[in-house]
Nucleic acid binder design. Structure first.
Length: 731
DNA sequence: GCCTCTGGATTTTTT
DNA sequence: ATCCAGAGGC
């Protein structure tokens, strides 16, 4: 092995500050990295450099990323650069890393290593139950707001005792009481919420110095990406782990901080320089991603924020085309504009569908886009929507699995006990809960008491019979789980509870069953694990995935994504839609200048995702919920320098009284074909579609003066509008 | 105990 | 427009 060669390879092609960032391997380092400045590249090279040049074993390196996807990609990249085994490298999100530590050290902390992770959905049901138990009306105290108050408290490292002592309002008083109950319910369910995963690690390190020392010795080098979006708890964990060696490198960009609502705290970057006065600060300001025009537009948008340090971004890239700002009539036309412009780009400038992304502020906006894309037959990839793991059928099955792994999990138990219907209803559940509470046991243990007939009054023979049957079922599944792999267990559950039959007759049963199949596919990848381990690895994966983690770059699909999710990604062509007052900036930020600046950063993040083409679209009217109303163009449009924008000036009544530039090119809405030519198909016909290939027409029905066809293609079933989807009859 | 109907609320972003 | 919770009927 020639270290000299390796070193040269790892540094070649890096600019001066990038090189400095890679070579500065000891002590605290703060890298302030503008968008597109090769940040990911620097981190990957730095890790590889540590391994190959400095000779640090991968097991002594810890790197934290924002998403699992980023972790996967980073690992692959480092493996390529370091040309060796990186299996011992610790690389993941804070949550994933903390979960691993907690499973390892559960005994020390006095919790069961079988703990389950509760997501917001589970969290909400525990809060509802807590409210019920202390006789509070969920109407008056919305569980979601209580949940976020509790989460905020946890992010400030306040346990319920601390919180109860520091309450300053009636609402906080209530939150404190719910918090206490909530936390006790979690404990008895042997469950942790997302915040607990982090807090328990801090607690572990605080109370067990020998454990902390172990990790401090192991992790000689620590790196954290997206540092601007970490919260105080995460900062504390990093500080603890890197406490001995002090080789801590954090990378971030204050201008891209968009998670303050999740308690991310920009002060972490400022605190960093205070806590580590000897920190070396490196600025990455050369942008390799975007055209000069896009970069300049981004810079002048972000410049409007008061609370920031100025930064000089520059690029050697060409100027490129102007930013195109378009006003459409409504959200339908907005979607049509995007779809037709995507088509035009594909035809005229060698851009693939996969190079295009549509970004929006709220998930609800994806709907109009989806509908139009379906009509056009434009293939798209929606990141999120209703998240897969939040679908009812998926949650049902996951609850069965979670319950098998940890029968103390009362949220899961209460969810599955009557799915499919077994005659154990509300009344019985009340009784069950009170019995459990009275005896000081879990609900699962209470079930055994009832089924064995030791419960006494309050039970009927019918109830005892139903409960005995359920208890037998769970016993059977639990012992099955100890012998068989995850896939066999999954199939056994479906089979034993008759889930397919249960779904039949539900609305949207086909799609639901399809989701079950998809979940089975996920389970399949864990089939080679030993019985119980497969189960727990699967559940952990499921609990900690995010939607972006599953985003694949499919060359022939347009990406639909929220601005938040788009962070860290890049696309040759970007459409930012819904640039209207109330949407972007969102109405919730109107009365808080700090929030308003965050909205602007969000817009900035969107702009800087674009490499070559940037479109900014707003609609004149947009329907929300029931009614439609006129919208005002976003004040942020006024931050775009006129000379970079293509369009004719048009003044609007924007709240900031800026001039808005609108590109008045007429939108060419495709005209539907006359009906006679449309209805040339009938059900059962074989047809061909440009993108999807051959398929069979499953059904046809009139729709808004057009026809909607459901066509089964190989692998997928699509709904298409006949006038737009260029279907050809085959045979 | 379960199903169906109606009225009310509901949309910000997510590990 | 759609989803959810509570009320009332079977």
């Amino acid at each position: 092995m020639n270290d000299g060669m390796t070193e040269k390879d790892l540094l070649s092609g890096l600019n001066a500050p990038q090189k400095a960032a890679v070579e500065q391997v000891s002590g605290p380092v703060l890298i302030l990295a503008g968008p597109g400045s090769g940040k990911t590249r620097v981190i990957a090279h730095r890790v590889a450099y540590l391994i190959r040049v400095i000779g640090i074993s991968p097991q002594h390196i810890l790197a934290v990323t924002f998403t699992n996807k980023a972790a996967r990609e980073m690992k692959a990249r480092v493996a390529g650069l370091a040309s060796g085994s990186v299996t011992n490298l610790t690389l993941g999100t804070f949550h994933a890393i903390c979960t691993r530590i907690l499973r390892q050290e559960a005994k020390t902390l006095g919790i069961s290593p079988q703990f389950v992770i509760y997501d917001d959905d589970d969290q909400t049901s525990v809060i509802k139950r807590s409210l019920q138990e202390i006789n509070l009306d969920p109407k008056q105290y919305p569980p979601r707001s209580i949940a976020s108050a509790i989460s905020a408290a946890k992010s400030r490292m306040l346990g319920y005792q601390d919180y109860l002592q520091s309450t300053r309002s009636y609402f906080e008083e209530i939150v404190g009481r719910v918090y206490e109950r909530y936390q006790k319910l979690l404990a008895s369910s042997n469950a942790l919420d997302f915040d607990d995963l982090l807090l328990n690690v801090i607690e572990l390190f605080r109370t067990h110095t020998e454990v902390l020392k172990k990790y401090q010795n192991r992790y000689q080098h620590v790196m954290v990406d997206e540092f601007q979006d970490t919260n105080l708890v995460q900062y504390e964990i990093v500080k603890q782990i890197s406490g001995k060696h002090r080789n801590l490198c954090v990378v971030g960009d204050p201008d891209q901080s968009i998670y303050s609502w999740r308690s991310a705290d920009l002060r972490n970057i400022l605190n960093f320089e205070r806590d580590y006065p000897d920190a070396k600060v490196i600025m990455l300001e050369q942008n390799y991603r975007s055209t000069g025009t896009i970069l300049e537009a981004a810079a002048s948008v972000i410049k409007a924020n008061r609370q920031r340090k100025p930064k000089d971004l520059w690029t050697k890239n060409e100027r490129g085309s102007p930013v195109i700002v378009v006003e459409t009539y409504d959200e339908q036309e907005e979607a049509r504009f995007v779809a037709s412009e995507v088509d035009r780009l594909v035809d005229s400038v060698k851009v693939k569908l996969g190079d295009c992304a549509v970004m929006y502020r709220t998930n609800a906006q994806s709907r109009a886009l989806e509908e139009t894309f379906i009509r056009y037959g434009t293939p798209y990839n929606l990141v999120a929507g209703t998240r897969f793991y939040e679908r009812r059928e998926v949650k049902d099955l996951i609850s069965y699995l979670r319950f098998i792994q940890n029968p103390a999990d009362s949220v899961s138990l209460l969810r599955i006990i009557n799915v499919p219907v077994r005659g154990i209803g509300q009344k019985s559940l009340e009784y069950l809960k009170s019995l459990a509470q009275e005896k000081g046991v879990t609900e699962y243990e209470a079930l055994h008491i009832i089924s064995s007939g030791e419960a006494g009054d309050g039970t009927t023979t019918a109830l005892r019979r139903s409960i005995s049957a359920f208890v037998n079922l769970t016993k059977e599944l639990i012992s099955f789980s100890k012998e068989k792999d995850l896939l066999q267990l999954f199939d056994a559950i479906i089979e034993r509870i008759g889930y397919q039959k249960y779904l039949k007759g539900e609305s949207g049963d086909e799609e639901r069953w399809e989701n079950v199949r998809e979940l089975r596919g996920v389970a399949e990848s864990y089939r080679d694990y030993p019985p119980r381990e497969g189960l727990s690895a699967f559940l952990e994966g499921v609990a900690l995935v995010s939607d972006v983690d599953n985003l694949e770059e499919i060359p022939e699909k347009v990406t639909l994504i929220t601005l938040h999710q788009a962070k860290g990604l890049e696309f040759p062509a970007v459409f930012i839609v819904g640039l209207e007052e109330g949407l972007l900036p969102h109405i919730k930020s109107f009365d808080d200048p700090g929030q308003m600046e965050e909205e602007r950063r969000l817009f900035y993040v969107g702009i800087t995702r674009a490499k070559r083409y940037l479109y900014i679209v707003h609609a004149f009217r947009r329907s929300t919920i029931g009614s439609r109303g006129a919208s005002t163009a976003s004040r942020f449009l006024g931050d775009l320098p006129p000379h970079l924008v293509q369009g004719t000036a048009k003044s609007t009544a924007s709240s900031s009284s800026h001039t808005i530039y609108v590109w008045n090119r007429p939108i060419q809405a495709p005209t539907p074909e006359p009906a006679q030519t449309v209805i040339q198909f009938s059900e059962g016909d074989k047809v061909r579609h440009v993108q999807f290939g051959e398929g069979i027409v499953v059904s046809l029905k009139p729709f808004n003066g057009d026809f909607e066809a459901v066509v089964a293609f190989k692998g997928t079933i699509k709904k298409l509008m006949l006038s737009f989807a260029r279907l050809e009859k085959v045979g």
